[in-house]
């Protein structure tokens, strides 16, 4: 039985057909270039995604909330792609956060998530002016 994938490495979007060979290897066809084979291997054997979401804000350190304009949540993301099957766990951990302000862009909020080497970082600075 063959599996179907669309290669997203470049805009052509080749439709790949993949056979799983007995020794655990993949036989890929439909790719116009070798990058399609690499993509199929990553996507079928070890798929990963960058996760971006928002986290709740802890306002206790901030005196002038109005300086935050309408920003009610802080954008966060993983600093590298994370195994796809664990994305929901990353999201749950992000939604459980309460981010203390002020915060600087790039600050690590969840370090080395589940030993993956992937961190969750703040994707913007917030509340720095309010402190100044």
């Amino acid at each position: 039985m063959s599996e179907e994938l669309i290669c997203i490495t470049c805009p052509i979007g080749c439709h790949l057909s993949i056979e799983r060979l007995p020794e655990g290897k993949l036989a890929v066809s439909g790719n116009r270039c070798p990058r399609g084979i690499k993509y199929a291997n990553e996507e079928l054997l070890n798929p990963k995604r960058v996760v971006s979401a928002t986290a709740a804000i802890d306002y206790s350190g901030i005196e002038h909330e109005e300086s935050l304009a309408e920003i009610a949540r802080i954008p966060v993301r993983t600093d590298a792609a994370y195994p796809k099957e664990g994305v929901n766990e990353v999201l749950a951990a992000i939604y459980a956060l309460k981010v203390k302000l002020p915060i600087k862009r790039g600050t690590i909020l969840l370090a080395d998530f589940k030993g993956s080497g992937v961190n969750v970082i703040a994707a913007r600075s917030l509340g720095l002016e309010a402190l100044a």
Binding site: V50, P75, R105
Partner: peptide, 21 residues
Amino acid sequence: IHNGFGLIEFNEELSGPEFAE
């Protein structure tokens, strides 16, 4: 807030807010 900004300008994949900042 998704990734995909700045590959040409900053040579890294950033989210929109990071690019703006």
